[in-house]
Amino acid sequence: MSASASLLQLTGVTIRFGGLTAVSSVTADVREGELAGLIGPNGAGKTTLFNLITGVYQPTDGRIDFAGSGTAGRRPFHLTGLGIARTFQNIRLFPSLSVAENVRVAFHRHLRHRAWHSILRGRAFLAEEAELAERALELLGIFNLERFRDAPARSLSYGDQRRLEIVRALATRPRLLLLDEPAAGMNPSEKDELMRLIRFVRDRFGLAVLLVEHDMKVVMGICERIHVLEYGRKIAEGSPAEIRADPKVIAAYLGD
């Protein structure tokens, strides 16, 4: 596939909850290796769109294609297996697992051992477990979290929990990483660091990123292309410069 082919393609995607149309006929795409942004005022439907892409919700109308095939009817774990990973706006780590275990659980799609291997505990099993522990540490290292590896995930600071969610998502070996407000609750220097890390991760693992973020400095700073939602509809798409100058976007944010 060429670098500009679309990895994710949304076509006329719509979802209704009872009377409310949370996402309305959205057409958009994310290209292979691209760092894309998704912005919009509160309640615009950004998180709902993530839930649609990851199979948590099924669209009422329209279609979603990932890497050339439709995602309709597929369960979330299956889509993760195909290469879509995400973080959650309201952090959803596994509180009863340690930091390292949170990451290791996400290796699930790539495990060689089966359940009964863990009962026999043979050499190959133990070797794989050691290797996974190693790999988890490596990933944690990128985000400077390796020193917390044995701490319970819930004991981390808010910002670290957000970083751990990214590490955990990376452990699934995604081709597309969906980040839902990763900078929320971070201070300016943490935000700068986060921007650097997102770029680094994209380059290192060659993945595409779709970023939802309210902090315009972050979005404008790293996204190559930005989609704007308002009341579930897409109102604009373009480079940061274009978006900044778009009167519809300005109106949406300032209120009419």
Binding site: T54, V56, R75, P76, F77, T80, G81, A85, R86, F88, R92, L93, F94, V105, A106, H108, R109, R168, A169, A171, T172
Partner: peptide, 8 residues
């Protein structure tokens, strides 16, 4: 929900 999102 998170477990499914991690491929489980």
């Amino acid at each position: 929900v998170a477990a499914e999102a991690m491929g489980l």
